[in-house]
Simulated assay, not measured.
Amino acid sequence: MNTVDLRKKAAQIRMDLLQMIHRAKTGHTGSSLSNADILTVLYYDVMKVDPCNPKWEDRDRFIASKGHAVESLYCILADKGFFPKEELQTFSQFGSRLIGHPNNKVPGVEMNTGALGHGLSVAVGMGLAAKMDGKDYRIFTLMGDGEQAEGSIWEAAMAAAHYKLDNVIGIIDRNKLQISGSTEDVMGLEPLEDKWSSFGWNVVALNGNDVSELSAALHAAPTAAGKPTLIMAYTTKGKGVSFAENVPHWHHHVPSDAELAQALDELAKEAQVVIHE
């Protein structure tokens, strides 16, 4: 997809996830809105995946370490045909496989996640396996910034650099907010880019809500031979919905009928602006 199509698609994914959360009366709204551009670029522009063959041996892998923000992922997988789009209506209902965190019973989901801090460790294992098998697929892992307080993240970061896993690409959704407020108030992270560099990663900082910047950086990864790549994606929590942006309350706020209508109206207008650019 070109830039206009990617922006249009991201707006549609935001509309889909808001309706899904509203219907289910549960979900992590702000986080899924902030990562929608990242996942849109990965799935529609960068990664090698096949909805008809989800276990294709040479596919690129995606690990949602930031597992609570699963709504955008489910909407994208359904839109791409990994499972029927109608199944989104069962999100978080009794007996549904579309539970509130990634579930590997869902085609296209590599592993169950949600206990923060574990995704990167699994990605490192996958990266090492690919090297041992002589495979050239890449492993992308999306982490939250609040998740950076987990010690397992830094153990995995050391291991990836030690084994020279340039097939591992970590992405941090750096929206600077977590469930209990600002990341810097809860557990200060800065200088976060310098920390990752000091652990042996090649760090690329960009606007994580700009699909053209994301596309260029993710296509270019690995950005240094023999080094894992860390994409520091600076995003806006609640992106795309004016009254939700940078509001901690929207971390897992379910939109009311009126809020949903206003949000869908804003996103529909954004999609039209993109279409006619």
Rank of each mutant, 00 (worst) to 15 (best):
L33M: 04
L18S: 04
L120M: 04
D257N: 12
P255F: 15
E110W: 01
D166L: 01
V247E: 15
G67F: 00
A216W: 02
I153A: 05
N53E: 15
A123T: 10
K176N: 08
R7C: 07
L230T: 14
K55L: 06
R14Y: 14
D257K: 03
D50K: 08
K237D: 14
D58W: 00
S72H: 08
P191G: 15
G67H: 09
W154Q: 08
V46W: 00
S152K: 09
H249P: 01
I169P: 00
V46N: 00
A205P: 10
M143A: 12
L88C: 11
N246K: 09
F91A: 01
A156F: 14
A271H: 02
S31M: 10
K8P: 02
I13T: 11
T141A: 15
A157V: 12
V109S: 02
A129G: 12
Y163M: 09
W154G: 10
F62C: 01
K55D: 15
L189M: 11
S121F: 12
D50N: 15
R7Q: 11
G67E: 05
F94D: 11
V168S: 02
M15I: 15
L192D: 09
W154C: 05
S96A: 10
E277D: 14
W154E: 10
R23I: 13
H162P: 01
H251Q: 14
M143S: 13
